[in-house]
Design a protein around this nucleic acid. Structure first.
Lengths: 211, 211
DNA sequence: CCGACAATACCGCATTTGCATGATTTTTTA
DNA sequence: TAAAAAATCATGCAAATGCGGTATTGTCGG
């Protein structure tokens, strides 16, 4: 415990902010260096003192915690951000991760779990409340409904669609595959019929599984 | 602890398999119902007895653990799979998640952590070793090189690009935004210049962050 | 052997798109 | 407030694209 992990807290609710500060400061090996009521206050003062870990509430008045992380991560790349929220809503989780957060825990976590999470985060891990982690894991699962659509395409059609998805034109694909441009156009036409679309972008979106 | 969590273990190394079985069976609330040396053996016998949780090694002789999960997940959708491996290589993590695994821990985890993870997994969580979780979290981060590209677009240009990405033509976008089609075309032209691309698909690929 | 399908290829037409040039008005910002 | 940036609109051309029909060849399964 030579040098304690320095922590900052961004949380608008007085009671929670104080509780967290006391918990962190009271524990061995941790030092609560600053607390802020708003995202704006954190943005003003944190860049100067770049702490190790920031506990960030999401539902703040004014700027929300996610946008705050997005900005702070630019200014303090070394600082680790732990989102700390009441709810486990789908969208916010992914937005927070995109913004640069490396941990996401629910406020209902027991105190010792919280301290453990801070340590893990500081050591290069990414602690997640398990329900949060499940959401993330699920987002990787291949959906069992979609794949059939692409199954009805022939290998040649998939080949062409793949090249279209990389931004190549009829002519370019034809040259790459050593066939006539009209052939490629015919294939594309067939692909559209099978996938029930009417443009390259719609076809590519289906191909890449994003609609 | 009314009904214990039933567990199966797939692991080729005798010593590790035995250790895990003893650990699980010895703990309160857990029951090790089967152990297998190979993926093939698990595929043969598991579907009949569908346990709650399967601990799956990845580096198996013959079929690897990831492909094994891919097949078993179809046959036993209710069973939860925990990948259990020595190394934390990038690709295998994501492949395992895609295959349907909901937990991924390193073998070096202490025994009590392992039991805790099994419980969490069974209760709907997705326990991950923290270094694994970091990899996953990082995969969501917007790369620090790319974002500038989209930042140089104006809000209006992003709006238009977003609609293009949904497969709308410039005419449709014009109608949606109540402006002239020529205006939309001008915007699109400006977008191409800023992103250094020459077609819709290339622009949309950059917009959606996949090149 | 024959029908179904895939892959190849062509013609033609209307529309969309990529690219160039130019201009006006509003908004932002220095 | 003056300069810069953004949003709006227009005209025009050549190429790419979407959509329709037609036809030949080869492969595969019944």
């Amino acid at each position: 415990m030579n040098t304690p992990i320095t922590v900052a807290i961004v949380e608008d609710k007085e009671l929670i902010r104080q509780s967290l500060a006391i918990l962190v400061d009271g524990a061995d090996g941790f030092a609560c260096q600053a607390t802020f009521e708003t995202a704006e206050a954190a943005l003003d003062h944190l860049p100067g003192q770049c702490v190790d870990v920031v506990l960030m509430d999401i539902d703040l008045p004014g700027m929300n915690g996610i946008d705050c992380v997005r900005h702070l991560k630019q200014l303090c790349p070394a600082t680790q951000f732990m989102m700390c929220t009441m709810y486990d809503e789908d969208e916010t989780v992914f937005e927070a991760l995109k913004a640069g957060a490396n941990a996401y825990i629910l406020k209902r976590s027991p105190p010792h779990k919280l301290l453990e999470a801070i340590t893990e985060l500081h050591e290069g891990g990414s602690p997640m409340s398990s329900t949060i982690a499940r959401k993330i894991a699920s987002s990787f699962h291949i959906s069992p409904t979609a794949p059939n659509e692409l199954d009805i395409l022939t290998p040649r059609e998939r080949e062409i669609l793949d090249r279209l998805s990389k931004g190549h034109s009829h002519k370019e694909v034809a040259a790459e595959l050593f066939v006539s441009p009209t052939t490629v156009r015919k294939h594309i036409f067939n692909i559209y019929e099978k996938l029930q679309v009417h443009s390259k972008i719609e076809a590519v979106n289906k191909y890449l599984g994003r609609k």
